[in-house]
Design a protein around this nucleic acid. Sequence first.
DNA 1: GATAGCGATGATAGCGGTTACATTTACTCG
DNA 2: CGAGTAAATGTAACCGCTATCATCGCTATC
Lengths: 353, 353
Amino acid sequence: MNGSKEAERTKPAPALRGRSGTARPRMADVARIAGVSTATVSRALRQPELVSPEVRGKIAAAVEHLSYRPNLMAGALASARSKTIGVIIPSMINAFFSVTLEAIEEGLAGAGYQLLIGNSHYEMESEERLIASMLAWSPAALVITGCRHSRGAMRALLDTDVPIVEMWELTDNPIDTAVGFSQRDIGVAVARHFKERGARRLGFVGAMHQRDYRADARRAGFFETAQSIGYEPPAEVQLPGLPTSVRGAKAFAELMAGHPDVDAVLCTNDVVALGALFEAQRLGWSVPDRLKICGVGDVDFAAACEPGLSTVSLPRRAIGLKIAEVLRERIAGHLPTGGVHDLGFELVRRGST
Amino acid sequence: MNGSKEAERTKPAPALRGRSGTARPRMADVARIAGVSTATVSRALRQPELVSPEVRGKIAAAVEHLSYRPNLMAGALASARSKTIGVIIPSMINAFFSVTLEAIEEGLAGAGYQLLIGNSHYEMESEERLIASMLAWSPAALVITGCRHSRGAMRALLDTDVPIVEMWELTDNPIDTAVGFSQRDIGVAVARHFKERGARRLGFVGAMHQRDYRADARRAGFFETAQSIGYEPPAEVQLPGLPTSVRGAKAFAELMAGHPDVDAVLCTNDVVALGALFEAQRLGWSVPDRLKICGVGDVDFAAACEPGLSTVSLPRRAIGLKIAEVLRERIAGHLPTGGVHDLGFELVRRGST
DNA sequence: GATAGCGATGATAGCGGTTACATTTACTCG
DNA sequence: CGAGTAAATGTAACCGCTATCATCGCTATC
């Protein structure tokens, strides 16, 4: 921002652009100007300690002078590895994954890595395709969401040299490394919390049933625990399509209309819970006295709501940072495969329960 | 999802992995098996119409048999272009850009493009660095957010052959192509809307002042119009750091404490506005009678609020789709540079104003 | 003083494709 | 029936950088 002014515009006409003028300098050009071989230039750039200070200086000057930028593809091809990290997430819109993405980027951008991002849309076939095309770039590592994969994907993942990280979930036998938390336990924790707060009858508002199997795992934990601690099976409504506040409000209204005895509702995430909270207000159900509402995610507005939204805080950012950390070591060749990192979660009690 | 079961796990021990077994097949292997030259294989893969059906069939069989995957880096190096689209956004967390990203991906993934994503953190130096490293990948196109760039960035952008798209803003002289809308006019529209609704004194809750210059443009439009239609300069509070609901609530409270006469507040975005809405509820200001609140973005919860949050709907998704469309043509070599696409915005009137 | 050892640098063969150009084959036509 | 032409395929020179191995001084060692 500071100091950098907006420069003048106007790109030369298409016909005149590009190769027309000065071609992009190659390493050979740098070598010639510095009076050394390309091998030395290459070394000076990647392992400076192997090159004498004087030569290093000359090369630096030449690089500067030509404003040389190494062609990453050539380098990647020659060394059979690229400074790229493939990341596959099931949705780009979901703020959870965005935060994790940002954290991964933060932890790795400094080391010169670029993120290659793929969106699986919660579909295993998509994931498989993405895995294949990402591996075709010989990324330094591949980060994928979840621990369940199609057979083909599994084969590709087991067959490659590329370090693999599975995130946002745990498993007993990771392909390589897993960083996440137990989705199921979230449901367990919330059910217990409701019990503790004296709820009589539980309800659940879900979304993406049978598509987002992580959400299903939370649901399963909630239902099983509910029953094991003496509740009858929670009343349930699944919203069609993506979880939004508007749909959440509607689904919640439907749930309460069908089961007026419900006095504690777990929503599959905070966005849905927010919709439920507003709907409760509209319908005149007092929260938390008559009705308790809990979300999942601890999105920033959860703390700003009135009453504050109780929710489950997920290690969205921690996952990303941990992945970056693991990857740095994994790429450097230390650290064996097989690590499973449970980053846990935290039930955040606010006014809505 | 359907049909693909979870496969068995356990990657072979590190020592045994990778090259140890079968190396990844190369195009030469395919050529040998199919009984043709690599040139023909290459052609069969990228311009099938140039290869006879029989040969094409043999090659397809060989590819299938070896489950051959072309090495994208080799191809990219040789052809000096990669099937990659670089996208630079100022924040990954901001849901606006995520939607646009998703739309770009949607419109281009089918054609086999991969997104290389960079996060500039609203910093021009970062942007410049990202531009340089992305161009080093010879992407098929580069999409950047905004029309203001550092001098160095500008030089790099003007100097390259790669199609450039500037998004989320308009300009009279785009580097190549611009897809967005007028940020300033949003401020204008909201000021007029407040006037129309009978507001007496305006207020503004901003964030990222002097960092997010697009937000500043909206603010400028709001302030200038306010005065030109007879208001005194709006009362203003800028929140420190990223715009969140919690901070929004706090800043709003501060604003109202300092200027109790304010009866219409524009918040820099919906998240902040949501915080303000809740805070107003807590403080007992009735919305919209005593106080009108307007956000920007039309995030999904805006429609679910009570009262519904008036806001400005941005063409987040349309921008992405348009970019994909433009890029497809631009890459194909049709379509000249210099296009500016104004996708507009829409003031959405709900209960809060 | 010859030899080994080491640090610094150069020569060069790839990495795995793409593509301009050459070559072959199959037809069309005067 | 031979030339002319278009379609199909092969040949081989790169693309720009990395990495292996050879080379060349020089100093440390006995």
